[in-house]
Design a protein around this nucleic acid. Sequence first.
DNA 1: GATGAATGAGAATTCATTCAT
DNA 2: CATGAATGAATTCTCATTCAT
Lengths: 199, 199, 199, 199
Amino acid sequence: MGADVASKPRTKPADQRRDDLMNAAERLFLDQGVAATTIEQITSGAGVAKGSFYLHFTAKEDVVAALRLRFAERVGGIITSAVDRIATGDWGDRLAAWLTACAEGYATFATLHDMVFRDVPPPTNAGLADNPLIDGLTQLLAAGDAAGAWRLEDPRFTAIFLFNALHGVILDAGRYGGSDALARRIVDHGFRLVGLPTG
Amino acid sequence: MGADVASKPRTKPADQRRDDLMNAAERLFLDQGVAATTIEQITSGAGVAKGSFYLHFTAKEDVVAALRLRFAERVGGIITSAVDRIATGDWGDRLAAWLTACAEGYATFATLHDMVFRDVPPPTNAGLADNPLIDGLTQLLAAGDAAGAWRLEDPRFTAIFLFNALHGVILDAGRYGGSDALARRIVDHGFRLVGLPTG
Amino acid sequence: MGADVASKPRTKPADQRRDDLMNAAERLFLDQGVAATTIEQITSGAGVAKGSFYLHFTAKEDVVAALRLRFAERVGGIITSAVDRIATGDWGDRLAAWLTACAEGYATFATLHDMVFRDVPPPTNAGLADNPLIDGLTQLLAAGDAAGAWRLEDPRFTAIFLFNALHGVILDAGRYGGSDALARRIVDHGFRLVGLPTG
Amino acid sequence: MGADVASKPRTKPADQRRDDLMNAAERLFLDQGVAATTIEQITSGAGVAKGSFYLHFTAKEDVVAALRLRFAERVGGIITSAVDRIATGDWGDRLAAWLTACAEGYATFATLHDMVFRDVPPPTNAGLADNPLIDGLTQLLAAGDAAGAWRLEDPRFTAIFLFNALHGVILDAGRYGGSDALARRIVDHGFRLVGLPTG
DNA sequence: GATGAATGAGAATTCATTCAT
DNA sequence: CATGAATGAATTCTCATTCAT
């Protein structure tokens, strides 16, 4: 029929539909775990028909992967902009900024991260080591090492070490006052690790 | 009838059957993940009939829990005996022993641990914080603090931090020469964290 | 595409699918009993896939309940329209009409009734007393009593008595010539019970 | 070992074991229905091992049949002795005695009866017509008819009619004061049916 | 006789995926 | 693009029955 006036469009832009689905999936994964979430729950959570799922993803795994990517981009963005705000030479401040921003980003997305990075079937044994965030931290540590701000035998080892520690304490958070207190402790432990004087 | 030596008994002691099932499950979980493993695979792996599974476990979850427990007992045993070998006052040595033994224990069981501690449905958000091993490490750190061997604001926080770091680098291992090198690095980072002089 | 007359639609109206399933279930229940009938038999009898069963019912019990309801509606309809055809004052005729129509309705559906009303698990001990048909009969008997057509101490007792008697002889039918003869005997016994002169 | 003194005998007389099993089965059937009762529940209820069930019965059906028989014997006995107490010529009293005794017997065993007579798989469509009790009632009615105490076109029809009515109101009992009141009503309706003057 | 571990066929139910409309 | 009825493979779990001890 004509210009069907007051009805919201059946056909949303594909990107938005995809986002709706990812958001619904994210929420459900957090509540019930990946395995326990059905496609139908995702589609009905996104307000679309079951079949429409397959217009945007090929399988559940596919959403998980998309969520993983989106997560890394979000937290990565937060970290990058935080670190870039610090003058290039201030290695301690840069490290502190990295850790604080990462803690912040994780505080928001940590459980999701945990979910989509580990809950997926044949878990790639790599734990939390294959991770763009770790690459960033490794670079920072290596650069600081090169600049003489600290001395590390193997920056990547320390990055993995530190990142996993960070991840663990964040998941355990809640017990600690505010996220400020948490960030302070993380920075403190990070500084000890690289041998900077703590506050 | 006679001694009938060569016929394996249909009826094994319950404990042994249970172990057979757990071993089969462990192997399969490692290969395929928990979710992808079926009861039938477990029973046929253990050489028993499908129904026999339910004589020993109520559901797949149940095996996972049993595996978790067994893992904690095994690694816990290794750590305890290693630490107990050190004279009481040598806090640095005790910490080093703890970390080394834990790394060793994990090197043996790490992937399994990862599997059974995380792959299970509604993961309780607690990450690697609710863990008898962490309790042990917390006690050690607190005792060393009380004895003046180091000074820690919150031994539990440091324990979680350190434990997760350890766990992460172990999962990433392989990249590092021997497990000796790995253990040395872990001890080194652990000492930095508590403020002991590193080698 | 064209009119495509000869291709039966994959997608039938839900009501019709439900009916197909109920009909298949009814037939199978009659042949084998409720317990011995599997969902798969029902679906293949209805020409649908196993999973489709659960699109319309939640479990076998559910079909039984639906069948029960359908039965009551069918027989109830037959009785009501038969009784309503009789002038209000003719109590004997009304009772005769009720009994005859009920016998007729039962003759058609009796075994099914027996099946779905009793074969179901924890049978609520109530036997054939909790039954909309009995309620109708009770009302008729009470109304006739009030009008002085007969005198009954407790119309509900008599209704249960009469209904169960009716049910029993109908299930035993076959031995008696036509259903006419059966109906005549039932009416005769019914009249004796309420004290009306018999044929 | 020796004459193991204080332990109750492992080996009971077969009859008693059989009875134990039947009693346990009866109780469970009443509580949960025949289908929902497992062999294991029966054996553990009887205090014997699962395998021992098959020393006394060949299958669940077998217990049901045994229970059926036992029921008929018990109620039949009650009825026979009650009726035999009445002088041969008192047809009304004999009928009253039959109905009263049957009501009594049923009051004790009715639900069980309902269970074991109907809950069994391929239900023999015959409802409550193939039943030794009905045979007895038929004989009584026929004898009274022959003796001129009442006039019945088809004593068996009336027997089935009356028996089912009886069965139905007994299952519905509870609503009626004592079993005396129930028996009185049943006798009253029975007398009306055969044309005897009621109290 | 008695036991109870072991069996394995069988049933119910779920859910990812397809496809005609 | 969107829909959702239909599919059917796959999985879990139950339980009657057997049999070596």
